[in-house]
Amino acid sequence: MIAIERLSKRYGETAAVADVSLEIAEGESLAIVGSSGSGKSTLLKTINRLVEPSAGRVVVDGEDVSTVAPHLLRRRIGYVMQGAGLFPHRTAFENISTTPRLLRWEEPRIRARVDELLTLLGLDPATYGPRKPHELSGGEQQRVGVARALAAEPRVLLMDEPFGALDPAVRAKAQVDLAALRKRLGLTIVLVTHDMDEAARLGDRIAVMHRGRLLQQGTPAEIFSRPATPEVAALVASDDRPFRLLALGSVRDLVEPGSAAGDPVAVEATLRGALGALLWSRRDAAPVVGAGGEALGIVTLKRLIEAGAEPKA
């Protein structure tokens, strides 16, 4: 568990972070969003002491981080940054093995761990392990960066705009992979992003920052449907807000009894997917089926449209 308690950081006159308190539960993932310069990176870096706070403290697993030597603290916390930040003179293998080596792991254990991570991230160890960063694509570099952060089996992963430098297709794939990885490893993740969609996709909760202050925290649905301040509203307001909201819900929430004609939609599909299917086939309702193809009822256009509308006060 991570607790950020009344944390502030000033740089001369500017307050990069101002009196922020936040808790991140074990196994939870928190996305920090906000405009440029709002203090997201600064806040994130106080967790592994890349930044020392001016006031307040950070507690990880009951331990005040300021009482732990920074280099020892950082060996237990994974950190991924924008553009991967790989060591240019070291191969992918060497990059990934950095922290395990600092921890003096045995050679066979290091080798096994690196191979495991490369495989997990979809990179063939024999092909990619010996490559230098300049011989990898941006997406591959990013995956090696994630592997490096995970190498020493941390339970906490900090990510600062990890996918910011990737093109949209690679980025979407990276997001899916991260979600799977998180589930598999039970990681606690704090992710900084300025992409609201990414925040909604990867965060169990979203924290919105503005000029160093924490304006609101809550589930993606709460943030999208009930922004607490005009600044949050401005951040989430856009023409496709209904679709973002729909993308967060699953068809399971809206199934009702009945029957309908045409291709069925899966109960695990997003509401956004179901709406798309109905719009495209000019239907008012579609049958809903479970994972085994069994009929579960129908989902209607009317309910879908309501689900995408602003909640009534």
Binding site: L50, P70, R75, G85, P88, T99, L102
Partner: peptide, 17 residues
């Protein structure tokens, strides 16, 4: 590169390392 230096710190290297 500044990023590589930050990565070195974040990986848990001491200054000498």
């Amino acid at each position: 590169p500044a990023r590589a230096l930050e990565a070195a710190d974040a990986c848990g290297m001491t200054r000498a390392q």
